[in-house]
Amino acid sequence: MMKALLINLFCNLLLLQSCNPEKQKMTQENFPYMVTVSAPEEYPIEVHQGYLSNGLKDLICGVPKAGMEQAGWQGDGSKAGMGSAEIPSHLYLTYVAYAEKKFYTVDADLPKDKILQLFRKGFLVQDNSKQTIVDGQEYYEMVPGTYDVLTIGAAPGGVIVIWLSGNHHRTEVCRLQAKEVFVDKNDFMGFTDTTESQQQFFDELYKITVPDSIKAEITKNGIPFGLWDKYREKFNYRFVLNPYDEEDELTGYYNINFNGESELTDDVKRANEYKLNSIPYDANLYFKKYFTEIFFNDKEMLEVFNTLKSKHPDKPIDIIITPTFMYNDMKVSVKCEDEEIPLKKYKVEGVWGG
């Protein structure tokens, strides 16, 4: 009798564990994801061929050939039906960089263990079906979620960055280096054209694909090689609301950074904590009654943050948001210890609520 009870108890425990989504998440090895390719809007690229493979060099899936890619460094590329649920160990990719008039190849291992841990860790997401109202405020239960897109970003100079993204969260996996390679333009196009040379192919596509404003910038100053690595530098900072009264506060944010990472939180405590992040690109900031969206200038932010970091080493930085009268606009400054620098090149997209 006792033996039967023990067996029954053991089986019930196994059943409970198998039904526990958090337990399953921590031990799961396969996570479904789509594969996309992206590039800075100003510097488009196009995939020639590519694939992801496992540790045995077995093909997992192809890298999508979806035409010209210029989704932006903060965006995922076109979803063209390529994906898997197996964690990749290796990336092979050949692509053309139109602004540079070059082909590049990257053939490198990926940090499989890190990718798996990021999938397992995931993040918290809002469950819209589980709502409570306290003092007139709507609150939603936060439940575990994880990534569902693996994006390969290609920037000038052969800079390759891999991200995992999903549900307003995006995290860098690694940075790789592609090398310039020769690819016959006829192989790339899939047919033979003897009337056009390799250089004419590059020149014509440069003319068609690269924005005129960037052509002028390249003519004047050249391509800003190294900029996308500067974006990857991280600083210890937070957003701080400077309200008219003590009752208002920062309640959450959706922050997209210049390095391509992003994060969503509606937890007041976490929203007000310092965190290592690259400079912000687009900040959606939520207060008790209002919310605002602010776009930042990369050159100004790099200059201000590096100035404060050099003058105040190892000290945290505050990005201070000060509402104008009736929350009609927002003034923004950056402060470290007793030094505060007003920003001039940000753009307040709008202020809503009230």
Results as ranks from 00 to 15, higher is better:
W73A: 09
W352P: 00
A71W: 00
V134I: 15
N255F: 11
F239W: 13
V183W: 06
Q49P: 00
F191N: 03
L164W: 07
V268E: 09
T194K: 15
P211Y: 01
Y274N: 04
V35M: 04
E340P: 08
H169A: 10
L116M: 11
K101D: 00
M82S: 15
V334W: 01
Y43P: 07
L227M: 09
L15I: 05
S333K: 05
D187W: 03
E180Q: 14
G67P: 01
F295N: 11
K347Y: 14
D282H: 14
V351A: 01
S38G: 13
D229H: 08
D203L: 08
K112M: 13
E337Q: 13
M326A: 14
S165L: 10
F296E: 09
H169C: 13
P280I: 02
E141P: 00
T251C: 07
A39Y: 05
L16W: 11
K220C: 00
L52D: 04
Q49F: 02
I160P: 02
M2Y: 07
P323I: 07
A108M: 06
P21L: 06
E293C: 08
T36P: 05
Q198C: 04
L14D: 03
Q74T: 13
D203Y: 09
K179N: 14
W228N: 06
G83S: 11
K112I: 03
F191M: 09
L15C: 12
N128D: 13
L59V: 12
F225S: 00
A154T: 15
T94I: 15
R270H: 10
G81W: 08
N12M: 09
R232T: 11
Q28D: 05
C61W: 01
Y244Q: 13
A178H: 02
R120H: 11
Y206C: 02
K207S: 14
L343E: 08
R270C: 03
M189I: 09
Y147K: 03
G145P: 03
N8Q: 12
Q17I: 13
A39V: 06
V334I: 11
L250K: 08
Q17L: 15
L150A: 08
Y274W: 04
Y237K: 09
T146P: 04
F305I: 05
H48V: 13
Y327G: 01
Y286E: 03
L59D: 11
R175I: 02
Y286I: 10
F191T: 04
L14I: 01
G75M: 07
L6D: 06
T265E: 09
I208A: 12
I320W: 02
Q70T: 01
G157E: 02
Q198V: 06
Y244P: 07
S18K: 08
T27I: 15
L124Q: 14
S84T: 07
